[in-house]
Amino acid sequence: MNQANSTAPRIALITGGSRGLGKNTALHLARDGVGVILTYVGNRAAAEQTVAEIAATGAKAVALQLDLAKSSTFPAFADAVRAALKSTWNAERFTYLVNNGGMGVHAAIAETTEAAFDELYNVHLKGTFFLTQALLPLIADGGRIVNTSSGLARFSLPGYAAYAAMKGGIEVMTRYMAKEFGARGIAVNTVAPGAIETDFGGGLVRDNAEINAFVAGQTALGRVGRPDDIGAAVASLLRPENGWINAQRIEVSGGMFV
């Protein structure tokens, strides 16, 4: 078996790694000496910019196109990952899978369309499940998986029912992955960010002063989260010394609604 160890290159595959929390996570991992394969949907220029920023840290990086809503493309994507591993790192496996890519829909239950619900399902729940399945043969024994949930799976805010339902599914899926992949020494955890100042959801938390102040007022540490809060947490979770953390939901929210 291909055990993840100190002699093999540590490589992370991060979906949605060209921007937002995925990019921040990629940069934190790169500073820890981890190579990065990041995915993007359509903005190749942004992806290449992130690759350049990772390269500036001294780490190697590759950007690959992937639409999480199109599970039929996952076998071909796995082939592209296999080729990138060989050409860039002369490796056959990668160490860490960070299922980060996603999108948001804000609508009350009464106003949520079936099309919007299906899009959330295809990207967040079905996409995470079947992408992990397709990539499992390429993950090193002893590796790690981090699935991204949300604080909204614990507390409820109007307008996020469909999104939060998918994230609740991610949290259950994580425990099953940890149970089934444990024989290969693969630890699987969920990281659940609180409200973060990014362009996610149209930049609502970042750009709307009223919402920003509301979130800060409901957070024990008195401010809204920043991308560095999440990227640093994921990178820390994936460090070699933290391999005994498994099947856990780790909320990184500064203490929202406690």
Results as ranks from 00 to 15, higher is better:
254 G>E: 00
21 L>K: 00
241 E>K: 11
15 T>C: 14
65 Q>V: 04
71 S>R: 13
57 T>W: 02
249 R>M: 14
39 T>Q: 02
163 Y>M: 04
51 V>N: 04
59 A>E: 06
233 A>P: 07
9 P>Q: 10
68 L>E: 05
248 Q>H: 08
226 R>C: 09
130 F>P: 02
184 R>K: 11
27 L>D: 03
242 N>P: 04
76 A>G: 07
183 A>K: 15
243 G>Q: 14
162 A>K: 04
177 M>N: 07
128 T>W: 05
4 A>R: 13
15 T>N: 10
52 A>F: 03
228 D>H: 12
95 T>F: 03
136 L>D: 13
84 A>I: 01
78 A>Y: 05
210 E>R: 05
52 A>D: 08
209 A>W: 07
58 G>Q: 05
31 R>W: 11
100 N>K: 04
51 V>P: 00
159 G>L: 15
79 D>K: 08
10 R>K: 12
216 A>N: 04
229 D>M: 07
78 A>M: 02
119 E>Y: 01
68 L>R: 05
204 L>W: 14
157 L>S: 11
179 K>S: 11
64 L>I: 12
168 G>C: 06
28 H>W: 13
79 D>L: 07
253 S>Y: 02
29 L>E: 00
43 N>T: 07
248 Q>Y: 06
172 V>K: 08
148 T>M: 15
200 F>Y: 12
176 Y>I: 10
190 T>I: 12
192 A>Q: 13
99 N>W: 00
242 N>W: 05
77 F>T: 03
211 I>W: 09
11 I>S: 07
229 D>N: 07
234 V>D: 04
122 N>Q: 14
184 R>W: 10
252 V>C: 00
111 E>L: 12
130 F>C: 00
102 G>I: 01
61 A>Y: 03
105 V>T: 12
77 F>C: 00
257 F>N: 07
253 S>I: 02
85 L>D: 05
141 D>Q: 10
229 D>E: 08
94 F>S: 04
